[in-house]
Design a protein around this nucleic acid. Sequence first.
DNA 1: CCTCCACTAGAACATCGTTCTAGTCACAAC
DNA 2: GTTGTGACTAGAACGATGTTCTAGTGGAGG
Lengths: 189, 189
Amino acid sequence: MNEIPDRRRAILDAALACFLEHGYRATSIAQIRQKSGASTGSIYHFFSGKGAIAEALFRQAIAGWAEFAPSPTASAEERIKASVSGLVIWGLAHPDQSRLLDELRSLAPLDDELKDLRAFLASGHDTAAAAFAEMQATGAVKKLPFPVAHALMLGPAYSYLRSAAPTPPDAAQRIAAVFATAAWQSVKA
Amino acid sequence: MNEIPDRRRAILDAALACFLEHGYRATSIAQIRQKSGASTGSIYHFFSGKGAIAEALFRQAIAGWAEFAPSPTASAEERIKASVSGLVIWGLAHPDQSRLLDELRSLAPLDDELKDLRAFLASGHDTAAAAFAEMQATGAVKKLPFPVAHALMLGPAYSYLRSAAPTPPDAAQRIAAVFATAAWQSVKA
DNA sequence: CCTCCACTAGAACATCGTTCTAGTCACAAC
DNA sequence: GTTGTGACTAGAACGATGTTCTAGTGGAGG
């Protein structure tokens, strides 16, 4: 009885295809309507708006990447390197999904359509800050303000992925290692 | 006879005020029209569209920051550190202008309104790549692909400025130094 | 006085995201 | 068997936006 309705899934699939091809902003509800076969009313029955569709797809994409999440018992160095490396490897393997996430991250603070996504990102930010504070408490990393540390660790990876081309896995591994060691060097005590 | 028309200047000033207050996307032509006292037709007489206004303001803002440009005769370390440090110090001193530039940079690849700005950014990218290639030739920096090096050097600064609060000058100096030394450590030979 | 032309004004247009109104269909109640 | 009910669909209508169109103004040159 709790099946996901076909219509809802069709809308999500169509929206993802459109977003990956044209970006979030450039795809219109009309395009999603055509590709999914749903009607306008149907779309707004399942989602509160374009932003809600984007948020659902964002969470879905994040879930696909979360498998790279480092185990919480590893050392600070391993956890940080795994975070950065996982981000880069996943991003180079899925460049258009990565670009979509980046577009949504950029738009979230400015676009009220994406208010819920903004809240979701803020909660993720908070858990990352807590994890980093824990590493600071053990003396494993420098005592930097978290926004500074976050920018040092993940800024290069985000920046690179924004304009990266599809990359074969072995090259992606090497590039990921560069960013991972640079991130660790930047924040290690 | 070649004076800049008052109307044009009034439009630019009004647009800058609106963009700084609400961001590029959230300001409408109508707002610019009201604040500047110009009419719709007048705006489109001077600019080909909203994107052209943004591009004009982008160049204007870049000019205000270009004073931090390092002298070409300095060492690679000095030039790179000065670039990063200058960006951070200027960005922390002008947070809303910095955020506007970042918004426009994010939007440029996706929004056809900003096609001309996109070309302008690409040319700037090319000169930076050439400068870096020169440093590589002298053996001062690692032999990294330029996109990787660029992300390592400026990614953290861009990332930090995106969410930075106004900062007093002395604190800004310290933060800038953190990012500058991290950038140099990441790419030095 | 006439003619041009840079410039202005505001109505009109196309498109977008969203809301509204009306309805269909399956199914449970009685 | 009829009637309700509620999930779902459909498409017209709405308001706002960026842009274009049509009409005009006013001053400089012939």
